[in-house]
């Protein structure tokens, strides 16, 4: 078992109708219930923030990136291997709305499996 960070990029939700947004939440509920203990953490990121380019340049108050590059949020998921983690990402209600980067965490797990 390994931990994977799912990085959600884009502005996929913005053009959905109220009904479709609610559907995303409902699908998410089913997805998470399905994952059970494999779901470790998740957070949405605020739109605001800063980008520190170097010692002298700080870009604050986005949007400072292209829409498709904006990181909307992340999940930490436990999965046996990369393929399994990819499959979990594909089964998530966010697949298709966001680009999901699936990256294994390098350090040994700090959580009990």
């Amino acid at each position: 078992m390994r931990e994977f960070l799912f990085i959600l990029k884009g502005d996929g939700l913005e053009h959905l109708s109220p009904q479709e947004m609610q559907q995303v939440i409902q699908d998410y509920k089913a997805w998470m219930t399905n994952l059970g203990d494999q779901y470790l953490d998740g957070q949405r990121l605020e739109n605001k923030g800063a980008q520190v380019k170097d010692k002298n340049t700080i870009v604050t108050d986005g949007p400072f990136l292209e829409a498709k590059e904006i990181i909307a949020g992340f999940y930490v998921i436990m999965a046996p291997d990369q393929d399994a983690a990819n499959a979990i990402a594909q089964s998530s209600p966010h697949a298709g709305l966001y680009t999901i980067e699936v990256r294994p965490l390098a350090q040994p797990t700090m959580r009990k499996p």
Binding site: L13, P18, M21, V24, I25, Y28, G42, R44, G73, P93
Partner: peptide, 12 residues
């Protein structure tokens, strides 16, 4: 507002 709700409720 609904966008904020969707984002919040799918990560919290």
């Amino acid at each position: 507002t609904l966008l904020a709700a969707t984002l919040d409720w799918t990560s919290g």
